[in-house]
Amino acid sequence: MAYSTKLIDHYENPRNIGSLDKNAEDVGTGLVGAPACGDVMKLQIKVGPDGLIEDAKFKTFGCGSAIASSSLVTEWVKGKTVDEAETIKNTDIAKHLALPPVKIHCSVLAEDAIKAAIADYRAKSAKKEEEPVAPGDQAVAAAK
């Protein structure tokens, strides 16, 4: 299978690998996929006081296309507002990396990962407004 140069570049030099503190209030964590399917993505965003995503990190278990898709979206979400990040479409990811048809599900998973991270961040913010105390155990893996 011939992969695009962009895809190979993201696979060989993945951007933003790592983890943020999943218990922090300004961090949203998305964990999507399943080991049995051969793809699991963890994507995290850190939202600054100005409402912009100031950092994003990922870890991915999956094929080269899955790794490249998640690496790419961490680049794309940085500097965006949460609302803007939410508009990233799997088709944009697939197009940018020139994913072959059998790998389209990798881009779908990457979109799901952003959405899950945003949902986690919003849930935390809402909770914070309700009861500003106890930032405790609500983090963990949001594998829904």
Binding site: L31, V40, K42, F58, T60, F61, A141
Partner: peptide, 14 residues
Amino acid sequence: REMSPLWEMAQEGI
């Protein structure tokens, strides 16, 4: 493995 969320979770004892 360093970039695998599963490896990370396994190391954390999950």
